[in-house]
Design a protein around this nucleic acid. Sequence first.
DNA 1: TGCATACCTGCGCAGGTGTGCAGCTATGCA
DNA 2: TGCATAGCTGCACACCTGCGCAGGTATGCA
Lengths: 120, 120
Amino acid sequence: MHLVPADRADRRTIDGHRVCDAIAAIGEPDHVRTWADRFSLLADANRLALLLALYRTGPLAVSDLAIATGMNDPAVSQALRLLRAAGVVEGEKEGRVVRYRVVDEDVRGLLRQCGVNAAG
Amino acid sequence: MHLVPADRADRRTIDGHRVCDAIAAIGEPDHVRTWADRFSLLADANRLALLLALYRTGPLAVSDLAIATGMNDPAVSQALRLLRAAGVVEGEKEGRVVRYRVVDEDVRGLLRQCGVNAAG
DNA sequence: TGCATACCTGCGCAGGTGTGCAGCTATGCA
DNA sequence: TGCATAGCTGCACACCTGCGCAGGTATGCA
């Protein structure tokens, strides 16, 4: 079990093998970072409100999202741009109205968990 | 359906009633903020690595967490202080060693979702 | 063709956040 | 009692992020 990188193999450990277990438990750094980034997208109350509205209500227009959340239009637009760049939401243009919806299944799973204790 | 606050009741809507649905879907602002704060705790790769190690491996000492993640001791300590203040982890002192574990059930649920696609 | 609407973008500022360094406290052992 | 270890804390720095403002683009309608 030589999972400890060489640059810190000389450090003293408390529980020896449990360190290796922990390294295995953490897994690929890229995987961890991907999930951290995902959580980061939900870590803002405004963005989370937008996502909850989209997830539970279905496709919504930008203006309506702004009214529902109390945000300004540009703020909503910028938040949606971030979420769109991350592949979390997608917008469908219908005339001059763009309706967004949540397309990332991992994020949908997380949003579902927000309601297990109290969702009304 | 007068869920739209008075200060923005005069704004033009696209889908009228869907705005009310969205407001109902968002729910209590405090609830949203609570979950956003929760996600914020998992939004850092280092903290997430610590939590994954604790969640999957079980109680671990601070030094071992530092070795497993490659972080410095103070960095681990500060991260754990944040998580402890939020009620996510708890530490049990055994001599001069403190072993931490994840105690928040909501966070445990989120951590479990990190492994549904690829956890090894 | 002209105008209003729906949405997007760039910029700058205020605020929060992670990190490293140095030093402190507490426990265990000789 | 003296020393090493395990962990915690305060400070200062750089960094990132969300937001409002102003302006731009595209669609629909008269």
